[in-house]
Design a protein around this nucleic acid. Structure first.
Lengths: 229, 229
DNA sequence: GTTCGTGTCGAACGTCGTTCGTGACGAACA
DNA sequence: TGTTCGTCACGAACGACGTTCGACACGAAC
């Protein structure tokens, strides 16, 4: 308090925050949202914070931990549902769709999720919520336990696919891509691919959300069918 | 010094094959099987072939094409089924399990599959086979068309998870990992995680194959339930 | 004997994740 | 007030990656 000349270090650099794990993650999430996972490199992150890559390693042990931390933040964005047995199915759909949407909004993060089944508190809360909804629907304990492994698996895989489609959509018009796909199916030799050529319209119909909803729906149908038996 | 090195190029190197796309892929598959996808780098591949990285680019346009080619080979390994309506379900299970096994036997290749929905002839033959089996089971055309998108999705995602577990199993004893997981679940505060702590045994029971079979089974249950309605 | 196209590959470029050693700065202490 | 000390910041470098370029060798064609 006696020696004031230290104001210099904070004046020539315009209000640089003192670097913290949260601050780093904030910037990382920003890059992730706007440019995708591949753009979030240690160097880019450091550059965005006006420093060198080495400075990050004080707060974050490495790239993998950073990615897991980003995934955790995304997992924390999904709104949980308070279980109501009268509408457990709609609630489960909302929950899974929220997870899908959160991942799609952060391109590439889903690939982290498929590789590292997350065990952070936020992810576990989502799993807890899923279990509660499944049990509210009368699903067997064992089925519920295994299903809450499969449902996120379907969701993350769908998110990866959606991210790829989205990326392709930026390069060429989305309609062009679908059209090319239809033509590719139609061009197949019907003798060797009778079903594929016959079902070409069905295979290419529907957008990502519809197909995802279908996937969850069929799976839940299977679960309730088992619950009855 | 100029004249003697005539036959040397073929003598001091022991029968070096003249480098072809198939030959490169053979070596790549070998490394993939034994050390996983991450070990298959252009440099490593070139080194294994007694040459430099640049030589590979004559036959393979880049890393991504190489990975897709490897994935195609793996897809070609699954045995297809000749549809029999009397046992379509068992056949579908065999087909999907074959796909899973082929991927698990080539660690890391599944991550390529989730990112690039493959459109090679071999992959399309597998899709054609799946469609035939689904229709043999009386599944609606639209449901079959969408399901043959979801089933491989579940399979590849399961393969990624299996690969991760397998990798963890190399680092520490597999039993230790499961045990740690059980303890982690048990250590959760039961007030906030009532279902997770209650179902801890169910969540951690069963190996990868059992869980995969369950996932496919539930999904098929859902499909037949829809076919009836 | 000369030319030419083709397959080969050493060397280099730019990017990545990560580590190391130095330096600056504030707090504690004499 | 002067000195020490631990903590944080970060420039520089290391090794590995994918990819490109340009020079070289060699068999076929003229």
């Amino acid at each position: 308090m006696a020696s004031p000349p230290r104001a210099r270090s904070t004046r020539d650099r315009p209000a640089k925050p003192p670097l913290s794990e949260d601050g780093i993650l904030d910037v990382a999430m920003l890059i992730l949202r706007e440019e995708g996972l591949e753009a979030v490199t240690m160097r880019r992150l450091a550059g965005e914070l006006d420093t060198g890559p080495a400075s990050l390693y004080v707060y974050i042990s490495g790239r993998d931990e950073l990615r897991n931390a980003m995934l955790d933040r995304v997992a924390g964005m999904v709104e949980l549902e308070t279980p109501d047995p009268a509408q457990w199915r709609a609630q489960l759909h909302r929950l899974m769709h929220g997870l899908l949407a959160a991942m799609v909004a952060h391109p590439g993060i889903a690939t982290v999720a498929v590789a590292n089944p997350p065990t952070t508190e936020r992810s576990l809360l989502a799993a807890e919520n899923m279990l509660a909804l499944l049990r509210a629907g009368g699903v067997t304990d064992r089925d519920a336990g295994w299903a809450c492994d499969i449902l996120p698996l379907i969701t993350t895989a769908s998110a990866v696919e959606a991210a790829v489609h989205q990326q392709r959509g930026q390069e060429e018009s989305d309609g062009d891509f679908v059209q090319r796909l239809v033509q590719a199916f139609a061009a197949l030799p019907p003798a060797r691919f009778p079903n594929l050529t016959a079902l070409a319209p069905e295979m290419t119909s529907g957008d990502g959300d519809e197909r995802f909803r279908f996937a969850i729906d069929v799976f839940l149908d299977g679960l309730v069918a088992r619950a009855k038996a």
